[in-house]
Each structure stands twice: as structure tokens, then as C-alpha cells.
């Protein structure tokens, strides 16, 4: 992990997605990143079998946001026993769309010369936050008013010892943009927007009270099923 520090967008450490015992000795760990506007699946493939592995390929099942490999999985030399290769697979979002449960679930098939293996993982929604997600202020006010309060989702972000300025700049590094900030009765109210790769806008109000490490995040979106995942992204960005 930690690669994201260069571009600002947080990258989680790699996790094991496919254990060797389930894939005839092939172990895959990975994470997702977004750098300079491009999404990548960063993979480590380890050969824990006694034979050489070759002829690798990867395929995704249809998924909620059309994530797909933008290039073939390129592993130039056969992978010998106990060898690991690190690959960054570029992704695009122009693949086939099918709503998954959970929304950010991704089913992956990997083949090599031995067999075909399947696993599923979930991606953090912030890799889908585009860099032109700063909503025009008039549009924000109109949209906020237009989406009924019943469709507002509210979450608590606990144990976050940051002030409003630090919160704004940390979130902006991951393409969550602060449009306005107000101080009412001592508490900071941040109005923020972000846009997903498929054009869905999310509007946010983040309430920060001085001396209280627990924030209130209110989200409004015309596709409310994304809200819990956006909240999860806020947690991830703010706490790393």
C-alpha cells in the first residue's frame, strides 16, 4: 500500500483474493487504485505449486459500474515455483453493466496453463470518483432541495480527530470536493459533491463539531443505493 500518497487517492494494502489451496497453487492478492484519472487493479501472483505456470489471462463478469480490463493480463515470462510477479492491470468502465449485490462486487476469472479459477472481491467506491466531480454551486443548491429529505441517508463517522480544513483537503485528494463551508453555532458544515464514473452525482453535508471526533455525514443521491458505499469511502479516505 501507500502508493496513493503520490497522487493523493488512498490505496489499501493488497489482500489475498484467491488462496493457493483453492487454485492449484496459484495465489492472487490485490488492491484497486486510481491515479491520474486511471483505475488499476494491482495484483501479485505467486506460484505455490511445484510446476511452472504460464498462459495467464483474466476476465471480469458483468458488474454494476462496467469495470473491465483495458488490456490483457501481460505476464511476459513463465512463473516458476515460489516466484511472485506484480502486475498493474489498467481498467476502464465501458464494460457490460449488471447490478451486483453488494453493489461493488466484482467476479473475476483467471486462467493459466493448469486451470481456470474464479474469485470475487469488492472495490472501494472512491476509485470511481472522477476528477470533475465539483458540482456547480447553483446546481448543488437546486439538487439538494429537489431530492426529498426521505431520500437522505445519514451516517456517523466516529473517531476522526481532524478539523474541517484537514478533512476538506484529504477528501479533495480523492475527488470529493468542498463547494461551501459554513459555521453555524460553532459547528462546521461542509457541502461537498462527487461524481461517479457512470455520471451519478452524490451530494454531501459533513457536520463537524469542535472537540467532537464524531462527524455526521448526510448524503443525497438520485441512486440512494450508492450511499452506504460512499460513506464507506469517506471512512476509508479520512482514516488513512
Amino acid at each position: 500500500g501507500g502508493v496513493g500518497a503520490l497522487s493523493g487517492s488512498y490505496v489499501a494494502p493488497k489482500a489475498v483474493w484467491l488462496p493457493a489451496m483453492k487454485a492449484k497453487g496459484l495465489e492472487i492478492s490485490g488492491t484497486f487504485s486510481r491515479q491520474a484519472g486511471s483505475i488499476s487493479m494491482d495484483l501479485s501472483l505467486t506460484n505455490k505449486a511445484l510446476q511452472v505456470m504460464s498462459d495467464f489471462a483474466i476476465q471480469f463478469n458483468r458488474n454494476s459500474f462496467g469495470l473491465a480490463p483495458a488490456a490483457p493480463l501481460q505476464i511476459n515470462a513463465p512463473l516458476g515455483p515460489n516466484q511472485t510477479v506484480d502486475i498493474s492491470l489498467p481498467l476502464n468502465t465501458i464494460g457490460s453493466v449488471m447490478k451486483m449485490d453488494p453493489l461493488n462486487n466484482l467476479q473475476v476469472a483467471v486462467k493459466n496453463n493448469i486451470d481456470v479459477f474464479y474469485f470475487s472481491t469488492v472495490y472501494p467506491l472512491h476509485v470511481l470518483f472522477v476528477d470533475d466531480g465539483k458540482m456547480e454551486r447553483q446546481m448543488f443548491l437546486a439538487t439538494w432541495k429537489d431530492i426529498p429529505n426521505e431520500n437522505e441517508a445519514q451516517f456517523q463517522i466516529k473517531d476522526c480527530p481532524l478539523g474541517a480544513e484537514a478533512v476538506s483537503s484529504k477528501l479533495q485528494g480523492s475527488h470529493v470536493f468542498t463547494i461551501a463551508k459554513r459555521n453555524v453555532e460553532g459547528q462546521d458544515m461542509l457541502y461537498q459533491s462527487l461524481k461517479l464514473t457512470n455520471g451519478i452525482w452524490v451530494l454531501a453535508e459533513l457536520r463537524i463539531q469542535p472537540g467532537n471526533p464524531s462527524f455526521t455525514l448526510s448524503l443525497k443521491c438520485r441512486a440512494p443505493e450508492v450511499c452506504p458505499h460512499v460513506y464507506q469511502a469517506y471512512e476509508t479516505i479520512l482514516k488513512n
Binding site: R137, Q138, L141, W144, A180, K181, R182, V184, E185, Q187, M189, Y191, E205, R207, S218
Partner: peptide, 20 residues
């Protein structure tokens, strides 16, 4: 912050959200 005439609108929103 930009002076686009909307500063006041955001103030009203924040106020209304704090004291509904």
C-alpha cells in the same frame, strides 16, 4: 469563496439544517 450571489443561499441552508 466565489462571490456568485449564492453565499447567502448556503448560509440559509446551513442555518435551516442546524435549526430545522
Amino acid at each position: 469563496e466565489m462571490d456568485d450571489g449564492l453565499d447567502e443561499a448556503f448560509s440559509r441552508l446551513a442555518q435551516a439544517r442546524t435549526n430545522p
